[in-house]
């Protein structure tokens, strides 16, 4: 069974003549540990899809199932609880609380879940070390670079041990080097730490880190590409071809 599954997911904004169909009967399945990139031109509905998957917004029709359970039937409180325990969010603008340090920011979801502060902070510290911030544990967001802030955000997304991590343009506000590092980290989240990652991006280079790319256009899936990581030999061969291409 897939971790996340949508059934004819539809979202219409507004009504009557001004109605805009952001998503039109979208069906996707995401497996545990899979890294999926969602691509498409602006306004194609990729962010809407992400919001619906995360229970941040409710669909007009259709369903989102997480571990087989429909989100549509959940009350606001239950949905909140689900977000807290099952889903981690990574935002384009990092959205760290400016007055809290890295550990406190990362500890937020578990503290909101009622875990006592010292235990929550231990967990947060552990994740911050895993994302490579062992030296910046007590820095405040304004003392961190963009890439470091996004690492804190990723640690925050992972601290509650969610099954699903949703990332909305996680590299949109970063330079290309930091973007690569963050994309690599998200790949690690899926590959090494076994979470499903759904990432909205418009950057093909970042999308190439994923296992699968879903292309959306005008609210429908127009294409889907599964990428296979082959051994080094294959890659070198491709590189060779590239050189020929460049000749």
């Amino acid at each position: 069974m897939s971790l996340v599954q949508t059934q004819d997911l539809t979202k219409i904004y507004g009504s009557g003549e001004t109605a805009v169909t952001a998503l039109d009967r979208v069906n996707v399945k995401i497996d545990a540990g899979e890294f999926v990139a969602v691509m498409g031109p602006s306004g194609c509905g990729k962010s809407t899809l992400l919001h619906l998957l995360g229970g941040l917004d409710r669909p007009t029709s259709g369903e989102v199932l997480i571990e087989g359970a429909s989100l549509g039937k959940l009350s606001d409180d239950k949905l909140t609880e689900l977000r807290r325990r099952k889903i981690g969010f990574v935002f384009q603008f990092f959205n760290l609380i400016p007055v809290l340090d890295a550990v406190e920011n990362a500890a937020l979801p578990v503290m909101l879940d009622g875990v006592n502060a010292s235990k929550a902070k231990t967990q947060a510290r552990d994740w911050l070390e895993r994302v490579g911030l062992q030296n910046r544990l007590h820095s405040r967001p304004d003392q961190l670079s963009g890439g470091q802030q996004q690492r804190v955000a990723i640690a925050r997304a992972l601290v509650a041990e969610p099954a699903l991590v949703l990332a909305d343009e996680p590299t949109g506000n970063l330079d290309s080097r930091a973007a690569d590092e963050i994309a690599g980290l998200l790949r690690q989240v899926a590959e090494a730490w076994g979470r499903s990652v759904v990432m909205v991006t418009h950057d093909p280079r970042i999308a190439a880190y994923a296992d699968r790319i879903i292309f959306l256009k005008d609210g429908t899936i127009v294409d889907e590409t599964r990428l296979h990581t082959k051994d080094g030999q294959d890659a070198e061969m491709v590189l060779g071809k590239m050189k020929v291409l460049a000749e």
Binding site: E81, N95, P98, D113
Partner: peptide
């Protein structure tokens, strides 16, 4: 609004 939205997104209830 941003901070509050983020807290809501990562699982803070209205009461929180």
């Amino acid at each position: 609004r941003h901070d509050i939205g983020m807290l809501r997104a990562i699982g803070a209830s209205r009461r929180t």
